[in-house]
Simulated assay, not measured.
Amino acid sequence: MDSDFEHLRHKPPTALDQPRELIVACCPMRSNVNISRIVRAASCCAISKVIVCGNVKIDPKIARDGAENLPVSRHRSLAPVLRDLKKDGYMLVGLEQTTNSQDIHHFPFQRKTVLVIGNERQGITDDILVLLDATVEIPVYGMPYSYNAATATCMALYEFCRQFPEG
Rank of each mutant, 00 (worst) to 15 (best):
L16C: 09
K86I: 05
L132A: 04
V114M: 07
F107H: 03
I104E: 02
L132K: 08
P13N: 02
R83Q: 15
A15R: 13
I138E: 01
T135R: 00
S43I: 04
H106V: 07
L95K: 09
N34C: 08
D88R: 13
V130P: 01
D65T: 14
E96G: 12
V24G: 06
I23R: 11
R76N: 13
L70F: 09
A42S: 15
K49E: 15
T135V: 02
A42P: 14
S43T: 03
A41M: 11
V39F: 10
R40K: 14
D127F: 08
M29N: 09
K86F: 01
H75W: 09
R64V: 12
N32Q: 09
V56G: 07
P80E: 05
L115M: 13
R30H: 09
I128P: 15
I35A: 08
P60F: 05
N119M: 07
I104S: 03
N32C: 12
R121H: 14
C45L: 13
P139A: 04
H75A: 02
P80A: 04
R76A: 11
P71D: 02
S48N: 07
K86V: 01
P28N: 03
I117S: 09
Q97K: 15
N32W: 03
V114Q: 05
L22W: 02
V93Y: 01
I35D: 03
H106C: 07
A67N: 12
I47C: 08
N69D: 04
Q18R: 15
T135W: 00
V72K: 06
L92K: 06
L85Y: 13
P71M: 13
I38E: 06
S77I: 10
P139L: 01
K57N: 09
V114S: 05
I104T: 04
I38G: 03
T135I: 05
V33H: 09
I62M: 07
V130T: 13
